[in-house]
């Protein structure tokens, strides 16, 4: 069994408690306008090309099995249509201008990488987080990986958008210590506008996890003009739940622009950024309307 992984981030300190390693799985059923991991949306591997880093060395042209990489008069250009995403060019690129997002990996390959930082997890109350994209689109793999991590006594977190089948959740529930659960909107029409999908299933799954007594950390991206009118409604929704450990309000930023460009993807990032006061106000509303701790 293999999964498609696009990144392994060490010393992750914002994906659950303590020092963690986060594994990013490729493929996501939603398409949020503000997505800052566009490389995680598509299920298939993609080659990213950062043209500002290219030094025109031509190494990629030498190794590429197709005609995707070209150089003419010392100027390099990349033609994505011919690219097989085999990754050969990334190993030889002398400018670090090429990066392959999406590598097939087995549990046996992944596990030793995650164990390397086990001492850090233990000394900081951290562990491993599965994220994405949407990791639960590859739920069988996640379940196996989480099970093996638990055998080493490692704390596990699953970061999910919730737009997954109940079966997928059931697969990982026994091996997951905490769910990091994204809530983007309460109103269905707003949710569809922001993500392309209804939130019905997401809310059902949230209640399901809560009813089972699983620990849940809620994460709310705060994006002006998109979901900023949803905070009170979300707070109302959450106030009925019992197993929320914490609510985080993530202030929207638009740093991901260059990633869209490197992947030739249409940049959908909203331009309006929230002010500190706005996000702080959103946190305050959540604090007042629920009894949960709220942080950044």
């Amino acid at each position: 069994m293999k999964a498609r992984i696009f990144e392994i981030k060490r010393f992750a300190v914002h994906d659950g408690d303590g020092i963690r390693t986060t594994v990013f799985f490729k493929g996501c059923p939603l398409k949020c306008v503000w997505c800052h991991n566009p490389e995680g949306i598509g299920a298939h591997p993609q080659l990213a090309y950062y043209d500002n880093k290219c030094i025109g060395c031509g190494e990629c042209v030498r190794v590429c099995p197709t005609n995707a990489q070209n150089i003419a008069n010392g100027v390099h250009f990349f033609d994505r249509t011919g690219c097989l995403a085999c990754g050969k060019c990334t190993e030889s690129c002398l400018g670090d201008a090429l990066k392959l997002y999406g590598k097939e990996m087995t549990v046996a390959e992944l596990l030793p990488l995650l164990l390397e930082d086990q001492d850090f997890y233990e000394n900081s109350g951290g562990g491993v987080t599965l994220s994405g994209g949407e990791c639960l689109m590859q739920a069988d793999f996640c379940a196996e990986l989480l099970k093996q991590l638990k055998e080493y006594g490692i704390h596990t977190a699953v970061d999910t958008c919730g737009f997954v089948t109940k079966e997928a959740l059931d697969r990982v529930i026994p091996f997951t210590d905490i769910f990091l659960y994204d809530i983007k909107a309460r109103d269905e029409d707003v949710h569809i506008k922001c993500t392309g999908q209804s939130n019905k299933r997401i809310l059902e799954n949230l209640r399901y996890l809560d009813a089972l007594g699983k620990s849940i950390e809620i994460r709310i991206p705060y994006v002006p003009q998109w979901n900023d009118d949803q905070i009170e409604k979300i707070a109302h929704l959450l106030s009925d739940l019992k197993h929320i450990t914490k609510i985080r309000v993530l202030s929207y930023h638009n740093y991901a622009g260059s990633k869209y460009a490197s992947l030739d993807m249409e940049n959908t990032l909203p331009s309006l950024l929230p002010s500190d006061e706005e996000t702080e106000k959103a946190r305050q509303i959540l604090k007042d309307m629920t009894n949960f701790s709220v942080s950044t």
């Binding site: 010393f11 300190v13 408690d17 020092i19 001492d119 850090f120 000394n123 900081s124 942080s295 950044t296």
Partner: peptide, 17 residues
Amino acid sequence: AVSGEDGLEAFYGILMT
């Protein structure tokens, strides 16, 4: 990486590790 209460724990974790 080291801001807030969580960040202090992470910093402590780095040192103690």
